[in-house]
Design a protein around this nucleic acid. Structure first.
Lengths: 335, 335
DNA sequence: TCGATGTATGACATCGCTGTCATACTGGCA
DNA sequence: TGCCAGTATGACAGCGATGTCATACATCGA
């Protein structure tokens, strides 16, 4: 009755399994990895021994010996509760897997400290390259990782102060599209409720809007409300705007969560009195609810990021590439 | 001027870097991994050599030599486009990281073949344990992986024909809650639009509903519509139901995507004429839209799954555990 | 001037596994 | 019977890094 063996000096190794099964190291290896040329009897003896000893193959040793190289790419983002990131993760996973590699994910919670932590952690362990949606405002410190041979690619937000590949949307164009659309619909008081003001995406969108609105007669500068990171924050900003003596006639939501906050805050307002809405990010429920959106293609972004990363892994000397993907306005009922 | 060295026989190794820098293997190792006791001069020589040679540390060798063990856990699900899975992934990642390990993700697209593919792929490579939302109806084949020393834990859908840990919701209870709620609101024609009929979650929910409705006077058996996997499918099922001579007065949505399909199909219907809705899964936009939902706590599910997996890694001999998490009805405006 | 201490480096074994090659046995066929 | 092809197994080296221990040099206080 197979004594359970309570770790008599650490994990069981293949050698111990082989010994217990009464076969050679190599035969045990064969049996465990399902190779041919092993009798059923031998195989089951080995399997039994392995199970008795609670054997777990040491994958590092296995990879090393077989010459296969570890093949993970790491993705760091603000967390999958945001559908934008999860769609991105999906696309990246797809791309990475198509290139025969694996995706490890980690979550920064949009905190620079946590980002630093998890990127190093990933780099120290199995990961050969990093794809990151960064929450830092300066990326000089990433040079360290690059020097250690871990290429880093920035998605959604470009690298600042660092030479690196990146894939982002043309957020200025996005801002322009949103502004022009509302302007054309005769709106003259246009508000923007956005996420953190330090986000490059935030800034670019504002710049884009400015380029259209500043030369119009519309009022908007005074109606910009940043730092609506949570739904609750967004609601507060919207409440504030609606309470103005002359409330905006149109609202631009900086992302899908903000849109949710807007909708929640607007729900008691009679439909006829609601301001027009244009939101950044396209998500399924926005389509169903008929919200006009400005967005780029997340899956293209993810796929390109994966491709570029693999390409760089294959050739470190290539020039860094800055991919800028277009944004489009999809007109629906809300504006 | 550092000749780029175009792979003269594969990747550069530490040995080559050391040679080029004119130092010993060990010194090079120290320099690259930031250990103490290296002169700045030496360190920069090594760094330069590494960069010249395009050196990437072989993480397998590193892990093996240092005795640290590879530490990834794999998560296989139907893909992050479904917010339920992404919320789950988020929670699992959190739990796994708290235990000092990493999460690798893979996507089965709800296909048994792809599931087989990616689970083996993960197991062969870096992963020590697997957490899977399975799309198979029988899990006997997972015994193979278990025998190879890779524990498997099933989330959301229980293991069939296999002894394994699992964490699921009490879907029967969920079905009962939904049915009882609608019954109490005087509904007598209650429809259920669900995902694939082979899903254990589907079946349990139906069973739960049956246990309440079968002994009532309500009509429902003829109003069950399975296989609404996509939003489009869901719309079609709903359209069919609404076109009946005596359409249902209440709709139960099997998950959040189906709810979306229902809402889309219902959008042309005057609000006053819309059927009551109860949906499974709780997502943010459902809260904002005031949809009554039946759901369990996804983050608890993810966290428990991570904990259990790590626990099993630590002790293979423990009894398998079947965790059943409660479901709750959150009453909002839609029913 | 001489140990004592601390810093910088190197030699070498070693981690646990798999690839290669050699060996032994089996059955079928000329 | 003898040979060959196919099957089953084992011995052994080596994957590429790091830990351990030894060594060499510099600095410092007595």
């Amino acid at each position: 009755m197979a004594d359970p063996i309570s770790a008599p000096g650490g994990r069981a190794t293949l050698a111990k399994v082989a010994e217990r099964a009464g076969v050679s190291l190599k035969t045990a290896s064969r049996a465990l990895s399902g190779e041919a040329y092993v009798t059923d009897e031998t195989r089951s003896k080995v399997l039994q021994a392995a199970s008795d000893l609670d054997y777990q193959r040491n994958s590092a040793a296995s990879l090393l010996a077989s010459g296969r190289l570890a093949d993970s790419i790491g993705l760091v983002s603000g967390g999958f509760t945001n559908p934008f990131y999860s769609a991105l993760a999906q696309a990246v996973e797809d791309g990475v897997r198509n290139q025969g590699m694996h995706l490890s994910v980690a979550n920064s919670d949009e905190s620079p400290e946590k980002e630093r932590l998890v990127t190093h952690d990933l780099a120290d362990r199995q990961t050969k390259a990093l794809i990151v949606v960064s929450s830092m405002t300066d990326h000089a410190e990433y040079r360290q990782l690059q020097a250690r041979g871990v290429p880093v690619l920035f998605v959604d937000r470009p690298a600042v102060n660092l030479e690196a590949d990146s894939v982002v949307f043309d957020n200025q164009e996005g801002g322009r599209l949103a502004a022009a659309h509302l302007l054309a619909a005769q709106h003259r008081r246009i508000a923007f409720v956005g996420d953190y003001a330090w986000l490059p995406t935030y800034r670019s969108r504002i710049e884009g809007m400015a380029s259209v609105l500043d030369e119009s007669s519309a009022e908007w500068q005074s109606l910009v409300r940043p730092d609506a990171h949570s739904i609750t924050d967004a609601r507060a900003r919207v409440g504030e705007l609606l309470a103005m003596r002359e409330p905006p006639t149109a609202l631009v939501a900086g992302n899908n969560r903000i849109l949710l906050g807007i909708l929640e805050e607007l729900s008691p307002v009679p439909v006829a009195d609601r301001p027009a809405i244009v939101a950044f990010d396209d998500v399924e429920w926005a389509r169903v609810l008929g919200i006009t959106v400005v967005a780029g293609e997340t899956d293209v972004m993810g796929r390109r990021a994966a491709e570029l990363t693999v390409a760089r892994l294959a050739d470190r000397t290539r020039q860094t590439e800055q991919v800028v993907l277009p944004m489009r306005l999809t007109n629906r009922a809300s504006a």
